[in-house]
Computed example of a mutant assay.
Amino acid sequence: MRMNEVEFDDSRPVDGYGPGFFRVGGEVLKGSVLLLPSGPGLWQGYEDAAPILAAAAEIDVLLVGTGKEIAHPPRAFRGALDAAGIGMEVMASPAACRTYNVLLAEGRRVGAAMLVVE
């Protein structure tokens, strides 16, 4: 089997996660995270849609990590993303981390909003 090293250009992949934190590009972020082309940052949850909406022209899909288990985001959050033309894929945060890295490695225009795994 031939193994290839993945290159992420200037983007920062998710290196790991645990109870209450994510490690993104070697930096530990305590709390929920928002990963956009402008860089990683903390996310205040579903009520904090403004930075996502501001990045609508830079992303084609937003991966929404709902924590340890998959859950439905609130209707208002879904409606705001839909109105902005942002596609959304909902999954548990561990799956969102893996999917984000794969799409990032493919050079896709992806963002992620992930709640911490407790």
Rank of each mutant, 00 (worst) to 15 (best):
Y46Q: 14
A83H: 08
G16F: 12
P19K: 09
S38P: 02
C97S: 08
R98G: 15
A92I: 06
L53Y: 11
D10I: 06
A80T: 01
S38F: 07
G39M: 00
I70S: 09
A57S: 14
V14K: 03
A57R: 12
G65P: 08
A49L: 02
E89M: 05
K68N: 14
A92T: 05
V117Y: 05
S38Y: 11
A50D: 02
L63P: 09
G87Q: 12
K30G: 11
D82V: 04
S32A: 15
F8G: 10
A56P: 07
A80I: 00
A50H: 00
D15F: 00
A92P: 13
D15Q: 04
L103H: 06
N4E: 14
A84N: 14
S93I: 08
R108Q: 10
G107N: 09
D82H: 13
A96M: 09
E69A: 13
Y100C: 11
D60H: 06
F22P: 02
D48C: 14
R75Q: 13
V102A: 10
V116H: 07
P73D: 10
G41P: 05
E5N: 08
D48T: 07
M114L: 15
M114G: 04
V14Y: 02
M1D: 10
A56W: 03
R12V: 02
L81R: 03
K30L: 12
A50E: 00
Y100V: 09
E58K: 01
M1G: 11
P40H: 01
W43P: 02
A95R: 06
A80Q: 04
A50Q: 01
G18E: 08
V28M: 12
G67R: 02
G31E: 09
G45W: 01
L104D: 04
D82E: 14
G85C: 12
G18S: 10
L103G: 14
G31M: 09
E89T: 03
G65Q: 10
A83R: 15
A95W: 05
M88D: 02
G16P: 14
D48N: 11
S32H: 01
A71W: 11
E47N: 11
P13R: 06
M3A: 15
N101M: 07
G25Y: 03
V90Y: 05
R109W: 07
A55R: 13
V61P: 02
D82M: 10
P74E: 14
A105W: 01
P94I: 12
H72M: 15
M91I: 09
E47Q: 08
P19T: 09
A55E: 11
M114K: 04
R75K: 14
E58M: 00
Y17S: 13
